[in-house]
Write a protein that binds this DNA or RNA. Structure first.
Lengths: 350, 350
DNA sequence: CTGTTAGCGCATTCAC
DNA sequence: GTGAATGCGCTAACAG
């Protein structure tokens, strides 16, 4: 294992001072072509890895501080977006040597109007960087254009939006998520039975970006030759428990061959609760995200499995990547943008 | 979020110097009762968290270096123990400010004699700390007694052995692993069918500690009321492919109702390969660890799923915990000894 | 342009 | 027993 290069070692090898190396590494300019070539020659031989921890220590004395604006959906404690928030805070803790002022601008994840309002307000906030939840595509594009013009870097969590240039984005592959849901549901339900996919009905808003992708790849799985499984798409109102209960039980009464219900969002526990409240058993339910409600249902055995998207890690990596960018001008190449997908059953619930 | 306390801040709050705070934090003694009380009072109000990264930087100038002896089974590239090794090396890289000399002493994971030999040789190696793979209980106990008498700290990876006192151990819950295997196999095979559990036959050696636990909890799952599934336990010789092939195909010919084969070890790909070589389809195979061979079978679709034990993370945490102990005298309390269990299907294979 | 230097959190040494 | 001083990788200001 090659020992890590230090900035002083580079300086000695290149025959220059640490100050010069620092200027080269940070592209601060004011370096002669010869010095630059000498340093580059050393860096070509052995790559230098930035050390965010020691940089942070040194950075403290400058007194400079970063203002990071974070705009994500508001959510209850223990829910998906709150877990992403946990990740942010954990990173702020770990890099507390860097003075960071964080400002949250929440919006309603079911209302594009609320998101637009939030994003609009960000356009007039002077800040060092922005972290965005990519729930609404058009609104995100609009804000990013503004940020680009102000030369403010931004990273995405939970998704990606094309046509804009975040310095990084952290998410799980939604296509694979949908397919995995299908695979697991397919395995856990009897081969002759029918399958239902439940979609939360939204008033005056289209489905979220991620849900759309998941739904599409879920359906695609069952359209493949040899699957031979009847799929029923059902809308349900996620608002009040009684509404769900009657919708679920009447659906199952009308479709007695259905043995599995897949939900492409994290409100899946509401379906599980509706089933157990109605005394219905033997239906395999699967969905997304280890939220408090979902975890409870898995523990109770009314929810078979969850697909998890590492929300804390998404949040942590977003901050880490942003700090790397703010300090060095490039996002950390060693951070993976596509995070692994977790599967959670009763036995491996944390 | 409370800002991290620095050692200087503690000193100011307690009205002493940083040197005194350092002596208190590290239990180096030579501190007056009054000074100790003052520092303790500050620490009671707000807890101090050691910063391994900055400590490492400061530590570099002392010139001191640690000698860590690592004794684990030898393994091919990409196999389970090699992935644990990856974790070690990644940690050495991350904490490369600390001068560490690592020395590997490999043994054959199927031979207690080889393990005994390796562990015996460690008894005469002067070193700062030891990391052990706990494949063989008695041999581990014997070595640990020697290390205790020499006051050399040690941590375990992949398991725990009772009766000795490692400063830390990193593993996944084997009981839950076995149960999870049962749960997944149960779900993925038709309800009327029979289930087989395949055990690698070992000449002159009993099953490994972990396999024994997994097997027991696997069987326990199916003994629970209401399962109603016939379980067949089969020994197979993991040595040569042809042997397995004939064993597998003759077993399935004799037991046509079997639709699932569970393997409690990472040699599961050999069973998958035997099945596909024999042209047998429609049997659900599940097993352990994302090794190269296993990953290939999952990709090919001949192996349904794998249960993963985060080998890299086990290795990384082991080193991190050990360094924390060597520097501060206590293992890092924030490191989890029981790691989460991962489930890997085709769709979420890295 | 460049080298020098101060200082960040931290560990350690060494006069007092 | 204690605090001041030194130096680790690193940043940034500053003097030449």
């Amino acid at each position: 294992m090659a020992q890590q290069l230090t900035i002083r070692q580079i300086a000695e090898l290149a025959g220059v001072s640490v100050g010069t190396v620092d200027r080269v590494l940070h592209n601060r300019g004011r370096v002669s072509p010869e010095a630059l070539a000498a340093v580059q020659a050393v860096l070509d031989k052995q790559s230098y890895k930035y050390n965010l921890h020691t940089s942070a220590v040194a950075f403290r004395r400058t007194g400079k501080s970063f203002h990071i604006v974070i705009s994500i959906p508001s959510s209850e404690k223990g829910e998906y977006w709150d877990l992403i928030r946990d990740g942010f805070e954990k990173a702020f803790q770990e890099y507390s040597d860097i003075s960071i002022q964080s400002q949250y601008v929440f919006f309603d994840q079911y209302s594009s109007i609320s998101c637009r309002e939030a994003f609009r307000s960000i356009e007039s906030i002077p800040c060092s960087a922005v972290i965005l939840g990519t729930n609404f595509v058009e609104e995100t594009v609009e804000l990013c254009k503004n940020l680009d013009s102000r030369r403010i870097p931004y990273v995405f969590v939970d998704g990606m939006v094309s046509g804009v240039n975040p310095t990084a984005n952290f998410m799980v592959d939604q296509d694979k998520c949908g397919r995995l849901l299908a695979h697991l549901m397919d395995g856990f339900t009897p081969s002759g039975s029918e399958m239902a996919i439940f979609l939360p009905r939204r008033v005056g808003a289209k489905m979220s970006n991620n849900s759309t992708i998941r739904l599409a790849s879920f359906k695609k799985y069952f359209e493949e030759p040899g699957r031979g499984r009847l799929l029923k798409e059902v809308q349900f109102s996620a608002e009040n428990p009684e509404g769900i209960r009657s919708e679920v039980s009447s659906f199952l009464a009308e479709n007695p061959l259905v043995r599995g219900i897949a939900v492409v969002t994290s409100v899946v526990y509401k379906v599980s609760d509706a089933l157990s409240a109605s005394g219905i058993r033997g239906i395999c339910v699967g969905g997304f995200d280890v939220t408090e409600g979902n975890a409870r249902c898995v523990r109770e055995g009314t929810l078979e499995f969850l697909i998890d998207q590492h929300p804390q890690r998404q949040g942590f990596c977003a901050v880490e990547s942003l700090l790397h960018y703010l300090l060095y001008g490039v996002p950390d190449p060693s951070l993976p943008s596509s995070l692994p997908i977790d599967i959670v059953f009763r036995e491996n619930l944390a």
